[in-house]
């Protein structure tokens, strides 16, 4: 009888703990930092060993198609250089226009490169562990990006490791807008490799293939970072919003290195 009461009490405590950590994720971050500090160095070692073996394979045995790839890449590089030149021109004109309009000076973004050392053990949640922590200037809430676009944000950090919530996790939310039509909404993860674009008004013009970027209004992600492209639109006869599917540009299966933005982002509406 005593055991049964103790069991029920324990379950009740756990449910309260789940409720608290679900509504206020930061409050329980400290409790779980000890196992991360113990397990993450081993994950780091194992990942480094796997990378070493993979590198040997890539650099010594898998060179058959490299010559062909090299020609194609050189072609792409030339195109990219040309595009880059155009973008430099656009950037210069943008700076001039910003000066004219007396806009807030664009801040220099500081980033810390980090390596993914572990992934979420459960198929239901989408997080990764990176090999940089508070000692490297990483704090809870820092946005994490890769050249392809937004990856996620730091949800907890120990001294040398941090846990990153990916944008495809169902608990993730990013304020976003469609680049072409400026339609706004919230990007939420679906725990799979795609996201949903919530709260997009039915009147907004959205087409398959449209680029979706961060709006910067959430105060977490800087404005203009790429998220993904619209892969499906369902506009029902009733209801205020339309259903929009977004496929992220980032391939989360192959995520190996990331950049953590350590500069505290402030949008144009916040006081400096």
């Amino acid at each position: 009888m005593v055991l049964a009461i103790a069991g029920v009490f324990f379950i009740a405590c756990c449910i309260i703990l789940i409720s608290v950590s679900d509504r206020h994720p930061g409050t329980t971050a400290g409790i779980g930092s000890v196992p991360i500090s113990v397990i993450a160095p081993f994950q780091d070692m194992v990942t480094a060993s796997i990378e070493f073996i993979r590198d040997i394979w890539r650099h010594y045995f898998y060179l058959v198609s490299v010559a062909k790839e090299n020609v194609a890449l050189k072609k792409l590089l030339n195109q990219a250089l040309e595009k880059n030149h155009q973008l430099v021109e656009i950037e210069l004109s943008n700076q001039r226009l910003r000066k004219f309009l007396n806009f807030q000076k664009t801040r220099t973004i500081q980033t810390v490169p980090a390596e993914v050392v572990g992934r979420d053990p459960s198929p239901w949640f989408k997080t990764v562990i990176i090999d940089k922590g508070e000692a490297d200037g990483i704090q809870k809430g820092c946005p994490v990006v890769v050249p392809e676009g937004i990856t996620g944000q730091v949800i907890s950090a120990s001294a040398h490791y941090a846990k990153v919530l990916l944008i495809i996790d169902q608990n993730s939310a990013v304020d976003a807008l469609v680049q072409r039509s400026r339609a706004r909404g919230i990007i939420r993860g679906m725990a799979s490799e795609s996201c949903s674009f919530y709260y997009v008004l039915r009147k907004d013009d959205i087409r398959v293939g449209d680029e979706v970027i961060s709006s910067g209004i959430d105060g977490v992600y800087p404005k203009g970072l790429r998220i993904g492209y619209v892969s499906g639109v369902i506009r029902r006869n009733s209801g205020m919003f339309q259903e929009v599917d977004v496929t992220p540009h980032v391939d989360f299966e192959k995520l190996e290195e990331v950049l953590v933005i350590t500069t505290r982002y402030q949008n144009d509406f916040q006081m400096p």
Partner: peptide, 18 residues
């Protein structure tokens, strides 16, 4: 350990395993 490593709400794995 699982709650610390996984991205879900803390206490989920303790409850489920228990």
């Amino acid at each position: 350990c699982m709650d610390s490593i996984a991205g879900g709400p803390f206490g989920f794995y303790i409850t489920v395993y228990f």
